[in-house]
Nucleic acid binder design. Sequence first.
DNA 1: TGTACATCAGTGAACGCGCGTTCACTGATGTAC
DNA 2: TGTACATCAGTGAACGCGCGTTCACTGATGTAC
Lengths: 203, 203
Amino acid sequence: MRKQGYHHGNLRQALIDAALELIREKGPTGFTLSEAAKTAGVTPAAVYRHFDGREDLIAEAARQGFEMFADLMQYAYDKGQPSALAAFEATGRAYLAFARKHPGHYIAMFESGVSLNRDPDLAAAANRAKAVLEQAASDLSQHIPTNRRPPASMVSAHIWAMSHGVVELYARNTGTASPFPPEDLLETGVGIYLRGLGLIEPD
Amino acid sequence: MRKQGYHHGNLRQALIDAALELIREKGPTGFTLSEAAKTAGVTPAAVYRHFDGREDLIAEAARQGFEMFADLMQYAYDKGQPSALAAFEATGRAYLAFARKHPGHYIAMFESGVSLNRDPDLAAAANRAKAVLEQAASDLSQHIPTNRRPPASMVSAHIWAMSHGVVELYARNTGTASPFPPEDLLETGVGIYLRGLGLIEPD
DNA sequence: TGTACATCAGTGAACGCGCGTTCACTGATGTAC
DNA sequence: TGTACATCAGTGAACGCGCGTTCACTGATGTAC
C-alpha cells in the first residue's frame, strides 16, 4: 500500500473502488457504506471525510463510470471515422464492451437508483455519453432519404434500448441462460435494424 | 374488507398486493417484509403463516406477474392470428403494455434479483412467457427465406431485449426525460427491425 | 340445536444484527519561524 | 536545522433505528357429537 496522502493514501479512490466491487458482487442493494469502509481498511466514520454519505459515494462511482463510458464511446466513434456506419457500429459495440468490462460501474450508473440530476457533474458526464451516440446516429441519418429518415435521437434511443436490454437480460449471470453470446446478439440485432433503415445491403 | 378466511380474509393475497405496491413505490430495495405486513394491517410475524420469509413473498409476487404476463402475451398472440406479423407485433405491444400497467410485478420479475430457479412454479411461469414470444417469432420466421433466416430464438431475444431496454430506460420516471413516448419508441424500433428482416415493405 | 373440543391465523414481546450517522478525540503530517 | 504549532485524516465509542425472524400465546372459527 503506497502512502501518498496523510495516513491512508488516497482513501477516497480506495472507497470508490471498494464500493464498485461490492456493487458488482451483491448488487446495489447489497452495497453498504460500512462494508466499503471495512474493505478499504478503515472505520465507517472515515468515509465522511470524503463523501457526504452513502448516496454520495454511489453517485461518485456512477460519475466516474459515465466518464469512462463516454470516453470509450467517443474513442470508438472516432476510430470508425470517416465511415458513419463504421463509427456507429463501433459505438454500439463499445457500449456492450463497457458493460462487460466494468459491471460495477454499469450497475452504479443504471441500476443503483441514483438520480442523474443529483449532481451537475454526474448529469454532465451522463449527457456526454448520450451525446456521442446521438452524434453517431445523426451522422448515419444523413445517408437516409429525408422523407424516410427517423429523427436521429430516435435511432439513438433504439440502439441504446437494445444495448441496455441485451446487457440486462443476457450479459448478466442471472440464471437466465443466454441462448447466444451477448456480443452476437447485439451485433446481429443492430445489423438487422440498420438493414431496416436501408443503411446496409439487404444481403 | 370482506372476511372470507379465518380472521383477516385472504391475508396471503393482501400481503402480495402490499408487497407489489411497495416495490413499485420504492424499488425492490425499499421493500421490507415488515412494511408489507403493516400495510396489510397485520403483525410482521403473521407473514410467516403464509410465506417462508421475505424472499418467498417476492418470489410469489414475481410468479403471479409471470402468469399474467404470459396470459397477456398469449392473448395478444391469439388475437393477431392468423397473420404471423400481426400476432408478432401484438405480442411486442403486450410486453410494454404489461410493464406499464403492472410496474410492481415487472420490477419483482426483472429487477428484484430473485432467481427464476428458486421455485419450479416460478420457472414454469417465466418459461411460458418466453415461449409465447418465441412461438410468435418462429411463426414469423417462416416467411423469411431459409438462407437469410436467423434462428427464431434469436429474433425473440432481440425483441425481448429492445422491449426491456425501452421499459427500463424510457418507461420509468427515472429523471431521464424520454425523448419519445415509450410506445412509439418500441413500435418504430420493432418496425425498423422487421423491415430489416424483409418482413414488411421498405416503405 | 347446543355444547365441548380441535384447529390454526394472527398477536405481542423479544432477539441479535448491521446499518448510517454523530461526535469528541488523537496523532501523524506539514509548515512557520 | 530545530522547535512549536496548525492542520486534518482517521479513530472508537455511541446513538437510535428498523430489519427479519422466533416463540409461546390467544382467541375466533369450524366441527363432531
